[in-house]
């Protein structure tokens, strides 16, 4: 691009002009769009599927809730083994040698045993067996607690989450604690206890969301609503409404190899990190597109601009 051309293109236009009422155009656009928005809002409303509560989960899928509670005590849940920013249980995903989450540290500490089970149980008046179980748990050392919880977690998994088929074993008070938490959730008192964690004001839903996601019930509901990442979930919406369609490119990467195979290394297993990097690079590319050789030449090579300025080109015989 010559300097002379750039100079001409940047100078105030000295050619033919035509009347153009910017304010009128803006007001007309505002009126038309407001009418269209009001019409769509009246006809279709907006999506609002009710939130899932712990009470709903515990009533609808008690075995799943019970098993998840045991996993939280054993540290074998998704959150228990997550790593940063919640705990140090694993290194998390990586970009080659870089473990960025681990590098940033545990900034939102989550102790699945106490935050999800023990502390909530201490906020209510428990029945005799549950109160005794709580005392037994709190009086024991962490090694013993871990042994009890792991033993019961393994036994419950072998019994396909059917607590009635778990053989006798060294489980300590774990079954009673899980039963107590299930009763608490079914009564509707776990939702508030998880949020407040003994405080009055609270607006951080990290702990509830993680606990909810550790079970199967929440995932099953999202699958039923077509919201899973493997089915373009990030750009979908509940019901028959348009979602965040502008996230199509982000969702796209999760649909193709190697990112759609969680077992493949190094990309599939670390898809979240690699896709964030790809989207960061593409976003930067969009911002600096006029500086990218090849891409910036496309408008010259594919003359769509002649359609935009069709009249002008005809009038000026260009």
């Amino acid at each position: 691009m010559s300097d002379r051309r750039a100079e001409l293109e940047s100078a105030s236009w000295s050619g033919r002009t035509r009347p153009y009422d910017l304010i009128k155009e803006g007001v007309a656009a505002l009126v038309v769009i407001t009418i269209a928005v009001v019409a769509l809002s009246t006809l279709f409303g907006s999506p609002d599927d009710k939130q899932i509560t712990f009470k709903q989960w515990a009533v609808a899928a008690p075995a799943d809730f019970y098993a998840t509670s045991v996993q939280e005590l054993a540290g074998s849940s998704g959150t228990g083994g997550y790593g940063a920013p919640y705990n140090t249980a694993s290194d998390g995903v990586n970009l080659g040698p870089l473990h960025l989450a681990k590098l940033m540290g545990v900034t939102h500490p989550v102790d699945t045993v106490n935050d999800f089970v023990i502390t909530p149980l201490t906020t209510v008046v428990n029945s005799g067996p549950v109160a005794d179980a709580l005392k037994q748990w709190q009086a024991s050392d962490s090694k013993t607690q871990s042994t009890w919880a792991t033993n019961y977690d393994n036994a419950l998994t072998k019994a396909n989450q059917d607590a009635t088929k778990v053989p006798a074993g060294n489980y300590g008070p774990v079954p009673q604690l899980a039963t107590g938490l299930l009763s608490m959730a079914q009564a509707g008192s776990l939702d508030g206890a998880l949020l407040s964690q003994g405080n009055y004001f609270q607006s951080d839903y990290t702990k509830q969301t993680l606990f909810l996601g550790d079970g199967s019930y929440f995932n099953d509901q999202s699958t039923a609503s077509n919201l899973q990442g493997s089915t373009w979930g990030m750009m979908n919406e509940t019901g028959r409404y348009p979602g965040q369609a502008w996230l199509w490119l982000y969702s796209f990467w999760y649909q193709i190899p190697p990112f759609n195979n969680g077992d493949s290394h190094p990309f599939g297993a670390n898809a979240d990190a690699w896709i964030m990097v790809i989207m960061g690079a593409l976003s930067l590319g969009l911002i600096i597109m006029p500086l990218i050789p090849g891409v910036r030449s496309l408008p010259y090579k594919i003359p769509i601009h002649r359609l935009v300025w069709k009249n002008y080109y005809q009038e000026e015989n260009l």
Partner: peptide, 19 residues
Amino acid sequence: NFDSQWISYEAKDGFNSVG
């Protein structure tokens, strides 16, 4: 609502993965 519960649960992994 449910949508925001799910989006926050899913999206956390992307943001956590790069710190």
